[in-house]
Amino acid sequence: MRLIATDLDGTIVRHDGTVSPRTAAALNDARAAGVALVLVTGRPTRWLAGLREALGSLGTAICSNGAVVYDDDAGRVLEASVLPVGDLVAARERVLTLAPDAVFAAETVAGLHLERGFASSRAEREGLAEEPFDAEALAAEGVVKLLARRPGGTCTEFERLVAPALDGLVALTHSAPGVPLIEMAAPGVDKAVTLARHAARLGVDPADVVAFGDMPNDVGMLSWAGRSYAVGDSQPRVVRAADHVIGTVEEDSVARVLESLLAVDRA
C-alpha cells in the first residue's frame, strides 16, 4: 500500500459532516508510515475546509469528480477540465427535451451558480442567489460540473432517462443519495482518470493503490485501484466494481481496513 484514494461523503465523512477521531487517526497513521493520501471527491474545492481540523494538511485533492486537481496547502487549482460553451448549451437542451421540469446549476472554477428553482439547503447556507442561466458567462468562468435536478424520482431514473441523449457529449454520473440530481462534466472526466494521472506523477502503480468509495461516481476509481472497498449500503454497480464490501462510515469501516493493512505492513 503506497497510496490511499478515498471518497469523502458517506465514505470517511459521516452524515453529520464530521470525520470520526478513529478514521482521522487511521488516515494520519498511514501518512506517518509514508503512504500518500489523496482525497477524491465530487465536492468542489471550497468544501474541503471543514476537513482540515480532523486531517491537518490535505495536500493534493481531486475535486468535482475529477475535473479539478487542487493543492489545498497552497490554495490553488493545479488543473481544471471545463465544458466548452457549445457542449454546455447542448447538454442543457438535451436534458430539457427529455425532462422539461429539470433545473440546473453550474459549478465553475470560481464558484457555484444556481438557476432559478435550484436552491438547496446547502446553497442557502452559503448565501447563494439564484440567477438566469447564462451559458456564455458561465463558460467564461470555466464550468467543471453542470448539475441538473428534477422535483421527483430518483438519480438512477433520471440518469437512465437522459444518458442515451448525452452519450459522447458529457461524462455523466451521480453522487447524491436520495436526491434526483445528475452531474455532467467534460467527456473523459472521471475520478479514475485524474487519479491515475496523479498516481503516475508520484510513481505509484495501480497495484499499490487502496481505494474507498460508496457511490456511482466512484465506480471507475474502484475498478482501477489494485485493492478497492465499497463502503456501506452501496448501489449494485458500486459493489460490482469493488474487490471488497465493508460496513458503513458510521462504523468506522475505512479505519478498520486501514488499521489491518498497516498492521500487516508493519509485521
Rank of each mutant, 00 (worst) to 15 (best):
D190H: 13
L128G: 08
A123P: 01
V144M: 08
A163Y: 00
T108V: 15
F133L: 11
L98M: 07
F158G: 02
A102D: 05
K191P: 06
L83W: 03
V77D: 09
A163V: 10
R125E: 15
E141L: 15
R122W: 13
V193Y: 01
D134F: 10
G117F: 11
A139E: 02
A137G: 14
L78M: 06
A186R: 10
M184R: 11
A135W: 11
P84H: 02
A185M: 15
L128D: 10
T97P: 00
V77P: 02
A163R: 15
V143M: 12
S81K: 13
P151I: 07
V85T: 07
E159W: 14
P187C: 02
E136A: 15
R149N: 02
I182Q: 02
V193L: 10
A165D: 03
S120W: 05
G111A: 13
A148Y: 05
L161W: 07
F133D: 01
E115P: 00
E159Q: 15
R116W: 02
V189S: 08
D73F: 06
A171G: 13
L138C: 02
P177M: 05
L172Q: 06
G168R: 09
V85M: 03
V95I: 15
E159T: 09
V170I: 09
E141H: 14
L169D: 02
V179L: 01
G152I: 08
V109Y: 09
P100F: 09
V82T: 15
V143S: 05
L88P: 02
